[in-house]
Structures are given as structure tokens and as C-alpha cells.
């Protein structure tokens, strides 16, 4: 292979995203290198979800340039190169489904419509479930799993097609303590294995130690951008400033 540095996983320049023609986040400059684990922090309604779903083609790209994995977004054919873990509190739909049936749907876009599931697909599902620590529950009805376990099923579904970057929307929100520990372990393992991750969250909490960059979104614009240590200092600084104002 050439010695040239690999292209950034995500490269946004003056990008704006929104819905039905109306921008929600605008003028975003963001470059994410391979292997980085980036937390996107911000209050509810700040536009952080619109920003990351923009990378998935779920919200409209309204301006600026967006390159994902070295390709302009609109020309990125194989969408399974970006793994998506949506913000869902439950997996149960109107019908019964097992854990492996749900995870297997992550592979559908990787093969033509007429080709049925083959042994390599089943092996990929098994491996993805091992990665999130649910290998022993492949045949369970997803309805019987806890909230945190269902969240890990969603992660396995995103991982099964072996994406180059994982985009997660609030993976730890509303998850009980025991599951948070396991979930944090899963994310740490993925980070150690070099998976690039973009994690939307409203608090660092369980992700502390895994994340190596923090970006904040507020009122549709990018604010802070730095390491978790710098973010902590930034927060302390703001708290002090607020304290002085209050006095």
C-alpha cells in the first residue's frame, strides 16, 4: 500500500443539514481521522442528531461539502460502510423476532435481493453478537431482553456488516447500571480494536475513558472541540465564570 495517509473518515466543510429545506445545523467544519472516538455533546434540540444523521443520508444535506470515507456523500454507494445505531428505546415491533433475526437485517444491503442468507452471513451474525456479549442469546425473543441488551442488539446489527465507522445516537441513555457497565466495555473493546466512532450523547458518563475527542453542538453550531481533559477544564472555566457572574 502507499505511504500516503488514509483519507479522513468524515470531512465536513461549511456543511449544513436540516429537514424539508430548513437548516438545523449549519456551517460545520469537522474532520475525523480513522480510529478516533468522538463524542458529540449538546442539549436536547441542539441539532446534534441532525448532524450525525446527515452523514447517513437521513437528514438533508443543504450546503457545504460532506465527504465520508474519502467520497462525496451523494456518491457513496455502499452505505453499510457506515454502521448506524439509532436512538431507540425498544426493539419490539408489532411482531415477534429473535435477536439473530434482527442482527441479520444489517447484512441485507450487502448482497443482491435474490440471494438468500448463506453460512458466511450466519457466521458474521454470530461474531457480531459475540462482540457485544450476547452470543448466548441469539435465539431469544428480543422482547425478553432488558433495555441495555436491546441497545447492544442494535450495535451488533450495525457491526455485522463490518463498517469502517460507527455512528451511534445516545447508546447509553436510559440504560440500567449493570447494562451501562457492559455497554461501556463493548465500546471500549471496539475503540481498542481501532473502530472509528461518532457517539451522540448528552453526557459523557459511561463513555469516559473511551472517548478521545469531544465536540459540542449548541443551537445549530459547533462549539467546543478538544480532548476530554480540555473539555473538563473548559467546563470548570465556564462554571467559574458563571459563579463570578452570579456573585
Amino acid at each position: 500500500m502507499s505511504a500516503a495517509a488514509p483519507p479522513p473518515v468524515v470531512d465536513l466543510r461549511h456543511a449544513s443539514f436540516g429537514h424539508q429545506g430548513r437548516p438545523v445545523v449549519s456551517d460545520v467544519d469537522l474532520t475525523i481521522a480513522p480510529g478516533q472516538v468522538v463524542a458529540v455533546l449538546g442539549p436536547n434540540g441542539s441539532g446534534k442528531t441532525t448532524l450525525v444523521t446527515g452523514l447517513l443520508g437521513l437528514s438533508d444535506h443543504l450546503g457545504g461539502t460532506v465527504e465520508v470515507l474519502g467520497t462525496p456523500l451523494a456518491r457513496l454507494k455502499d452505505r453499510t460502510r457506515i454502521g448506524y445505531v439509532p436512538q431507540r428505546h425498544t426493539l419490539s415491533g408489532g411482531v415477534r423476532a429473535t435477536v439473530q433475526e434482527i442482527v441479520a437485517t444489517g447484512l441485507l444491503a450487502t448482497r443482491p435481493w435474490w440471494r438468500p442468507t448463506g453460512p458466511p452471513d450466519r457466521e458474521a451474525v454470530r461474531r457480531a453478537l459475540e462482540t457485544v456479549g450476547l452470543g448466548d442469546r441469539a435465539r431469544f425473543d428480543v422482547d425478553t431482553l432488558s433495555g441495555g441488551q436491546q441497545r447492544r442488539v442494535l450495535i451488533a446489527r450495525a457491526l455485522v456488516a463490518q463498517p469502517e465507522v460507527l455512528v451511534m445516537d445516545e447508546p447509553t441513555a436510559g440504560v440500567d447500571e449493570a447494562s451501562q457497565v457492559v455497554l461501556a466495555g463493548v465500546l471500549r473493546r471496539l475503540a481498542t480494536s481501532g473502530t472509528t466512532m461518532l457517539v451522540v450523547t448528552h453526557e459523557l458518563g459511561a463513555l469516559r475513558g473511551t472517548v478521545d475527542r469531544v465536540v459540542t453542538v449548541d443551537a445549530g453550531h459547533l462549539g467546543f472541540d478538544g480532548t476530554p481533559q480540555e473539555y473538563a477544564a473548559h467546563q470548570a472555566e465556564r462554571a467559574r465564570a458563571a459563579g463570578r457572574e452570579g456573585a
Partner: peptide
């Protein structure tokens, strides 16, 4: 399987292409 995926989670199905 495809109908199952789309009926179960349209957003994910769209994101995965």
C-alpha cells in the same frame, strides 16, 4: 428478510442503503 427489515426499522433500513 427485506420486508421484515423495512417494516421493523425504516430509519435503519434507509441508512444501510
Amino acid at each position: 428478510q427485506r420486508l421484515f427489515a423495512v417494516a421493523g426499522d425504516e430509519e435503519f433500513a434507509r441508512a444501510s442503503g
